[in-house]
Design a protein around this nucleic acid. Structure first.
Lengths: 204, 204
DNA sequence: GTCAATAACGAATACCGTTCGGTAAATTCA
DNA sequence: TGAATTTACCGAACGGTATTCGTTATTGAC
C-alpha cells in the first residue's frame, strides 16, 4: 500500500539512544542528539516511537529481562543455598545498579518524573518480581520457603534495587557493603548470622 | 548598606512551593506558579534561591529531619523490641513514602535527574542514616546488636525507602504488604519467623 | 539628605519535546 | 508498466519552562 517502517532505522534509533543514555543520562540526552546519531530527523523518531520515554522503555525492557535471565543461569550453577542467596542480593543491589554506567537510574528518572499516564511499567515489574521470586524460592531450603511465602520479598528486593540504582547515580564510589549483603543474606536464610568474621572475601 | 532580603518573602515562597509540590509534584509545578502564589515575580525567587531544585531541598531537608525526630519519639514509647522494629519499618517503608501526597518522590525526581553538581544530599543522607541507625539499634536486643553491627542497615533501610517512595508515585494503591513488614521485622530480630499466622492485625 | 548596594520586576533568552504541513518514496492494483 | 494511495520522512514551527538581563526603586549606612 505504501512506504513501510524500516527495522534498521528503528535499531539505529535504539542503539543511538542507548549509547547516549548510558553516557549522559536520560534527562541530559536530547531527542535531536538521538536523531542525529541515528541519521534521521527528530520528527521521524516519532514515527517509530510515541515519545522519548517510549524509546527508553524500548531499551530498558529487553535489557532488564535478558539480565535477569542471565542471572537465573548463573544462580542455577550454584549449589550452596547460602551462596545463591548471597549472589542474588549482590546482583540485584550491587551489580545491576552499576551496570551500563547506571542505566537503571534512567528509569528512575523517567518514572519518578512521569505523570500517571506512564502505564508502561506494570508488565515488566510483574515479570521481574515473578522471576526474582522464583530465584529466591529456589535458593531457599524447603522449610524456609513456607515461612517466607506470605511476604512478596521479590517486590521488596526490587524496591531496594531501585533505591540502590539512584544511590549509584548519586555516589558511584559507595555501593552496598559486603557486610550488608552477607548479613541480609543470612537474615533471609534464617541463620544466626555471624559477626564480622570470615567469609567477607569468600565471594568469587 | 542597602535593601535587605525579607524573611517573610522567603517563607512565602517556601510555603507556596510546598503546597504546590505536594499537590502537583515537582516537575508539574512551575516557578511562575510558585512565584504567583507567593506574591512575587519569578525572577525574584532567584534572589532567594539558586534554582528550583534549591527550593525543593529547602523544604525537604527540615521536613524529613522533623519527621524522623517525630518517629524517634514515637518509637521511644514502645517497650516491646519486636513491635519497635515493626513500627520503624512501617514508618520508613509505608507511611513516609505516602505522606504529603508522596512528597519524597519529588526528591527522587530531583536526585535521579540531577547531574553531579547536586552536592546537597550527602549531609542530610548521613544525618538520616545516623538517626535511623540509632533507632534500629535501640530496638534490638543487645546480642543481636553485635551480630548486625557490621552492616550499615540504616543505609539499606533508606535505599528501600527511596524505592518505595517511587513506587508509591507509580501506584499509590499498593503499599508494602503487612506480611512483608512482619517478616522482615522478624528477620532483623533474628526470630524464627511465623508463617502467615496471627499478629497480622496486632499493629495498632 | 545623599549615596550605594541590591531587592524587585518585566521582558528577553535558551532549550527541548512534540506537532504540523508538505514532499517523495514505496507498495498495491489494474 | 504506470497510476493511485498510503505513509515515512523532513524542515520549520509551536508551546512551555527554567533561568538571565537590564532597569528601576527601595532601603540602610554615613
Amino acid at each position: 500500500m505504501a512506504q513501510v517502517k524500516k527495522p534498521e532505522i528503528r535499531s539505529a534509533i535504539l542503539e543511538s539512544a542507548q549509547r547516549l543514555f548510558a553516557r549522559q543520562g536520560y534527562n541530559s540526552t536530547t531527542l535531536a542528539q538521538i536523531a542525529r546519531d541515528a541519521g534521521v530527523s527528530s520528527a521521524n523518531v516519532y514515527v517509530y516511537f510515541r515519545s522519548k520515554l517510549a524509546v527508553l522503555y524500548a531499551i530498558y525492557d529487553p535489557w532488564m529481562r535478558a539480565r535477569l535471565v542471565l542471572l537465573e543461569h548463573e544462580l542455577a550453577g550454584i549449589a550452596d543455598p547460602a551462596l545463591r542467596v548471597r549472589r542474588l542480593l549482590q546482583a540485584l543491589w550491587r551489580d545491576i545498579p552499576a551496570e551500563e554506567n547506571g542505566f537503571v537510574n534512567n528509569i528512575m528518572q523517567a518514572i519518578s518524573g512521569a505523570g500517571p499516564e506512564a502505564r508502561y511499567q506494570p508488565a515488566l515489574l510483574r515479570w521481574m518480581e515473578q522471576r526474582i521470586g522464583g530465584m529466591l524460592l529456589a535458593a531457599l531450603p524447603v522449610p524456609r520457603r513456607r515461612q517466607l511465602a506470605a511476604a512478596d520479598l521479590a517486590h521488596w528486593l526490587v524496591m531496594a534495587l531501585d533505591g540502590y540504582a539512584i544511590h549509584h547515580h548519586l555516589n558511584p564510589r559507595a555501593p552496598v557493603s559486603e557486610a550488608t549483603l552477607r548479613i541480609v543474606a543470612a537474615m533471609i536464610l534464617g541463620n544466626k548470622t555471624t559477626g564480622a568474621r570470615q567469609k567477607a572475601r569468600a565471594v568469587a
